[in-house]
Simulated assay, not measured.
Amino acid sequence: MTKEPSQGTQLASYLSADNFALMRQQMAFEAKAAGSHLFWESEPAHTCFFIEQGLVKIYRITEDGQELILHLLQPGDFYAELGSGDTPFSCSAEMMKDSVIGMFSTAALEQLIASRGDFAIEFMKWMGLLHRTTQSKFRDLMMFGKNGAIASTLIRMSNTYGKPSGNGILIDIKLTKTELAHLSGTTREGVSRMLSAYQANGAITYENGYLVITDLDYLRSIVQCPNCPPDICRM
């Protein structure tokens, strides 16, 4: 089962064809094996990354040693941390699947922004959307606790990976309960309890090992969903 990834925050959706081609021609593409790292937290953030193929998790390790997944980058996604001097990466990036990554120096990106006003405006709009997406994730976690974080994660997965199913919305990606816990800032046991509760309430079921959301409104009610557009309410 496959599905084209959401176009919501993909950089190519915000850059003109000419500007995207201009940036892409400066990239060096490399194959990366599942389990390998693009970068580690605290390394100098001298490189930007375009996901050509595969799946990449951006994550941090908390003070108590727990992993927190901040983003899952799909084909078409772009990742950069811009700052001054030797600004370090604030997190780490690991391949969840065999991937092909376009490498693009931060200096080259800054030069494009400085030299092309149209590129700068388009890039700023894309950065603004990413900021709104991050804000909405933290809203659900801070205001509605672990239950809200898990419900929010499932809603975002439905917008990013969902496809119509006879029973509802099939999530066309398999994540373990541990990975769901890392995405929602909770424990595997907490995820297991909440998924069981959702299933008992008729909000989710399973089909050939894939999670199916059968009552999206139930999950939305947990986080008092403000009906953000899908390009913000995504992974």
Score class of each variant (00 low, 15 high):
Ala200Ile: 12
Phe104Trp: 08
Leu154Ala: 03
Gly209Thr: 04
Leu22Gly: 11
Tyr206Met: 13
Leu180Phe: 10
Ser13Thr: 03
Pro230Gly: 00
Ile173Ser: 00
Met95Phe: 05
Ile58Gln: 02
Cys48Gly: 12
Ala151Thr: 06
Phe78Asp: 00
Phe50Ile: 02
Val212His: 09
Leu112Ile: 08
Asp172Gln: 09
Phe119Lys: 01
Ser84Glu: 15
Gly190His: 13
Ile61Tyr: 10
Leu183Ser: 06
Gly148Arg: 13
Leu82Asp: 05
Pro5Val: 00
Ile213Met: 05
Ala120Tyr: 03
Gln10Asn: 04
Thr187Glu: 08
Trp40Gly: 15
Leu72Ser: 04
Ile69Lys: 03
Lys137Leu: 09
Ser84Ile: 12
Leu154Ser: 10
Leu70Ala: 04
Thr87Ser: 11
Thr178Leu: 08
Gln135Arg: 04
Ile222Pro: 13
Phe39Met: 11
Ala149Lys: 13
Arg188Cys: 14
Trp126Arg: 00
Trp40Met: 15
Gly145Thr: 14
Arg188Gly: 14
Gly202Ile: 07
Thr87Gly: 07
Leu175Glu: 00
Leu11Thr: 07
Glu179Pro: 11
Leu38Glu: 12
Ser196Val: 15
Gly148Phe: 11
Lys32Tyr: 11
Thr2Met: 09
Leu55Ile: 01
Asp77Ser: 05
Ala12His: 12
Lys125Gln: 02
Phe104Tyr: 07
Leu211Tyr: 01
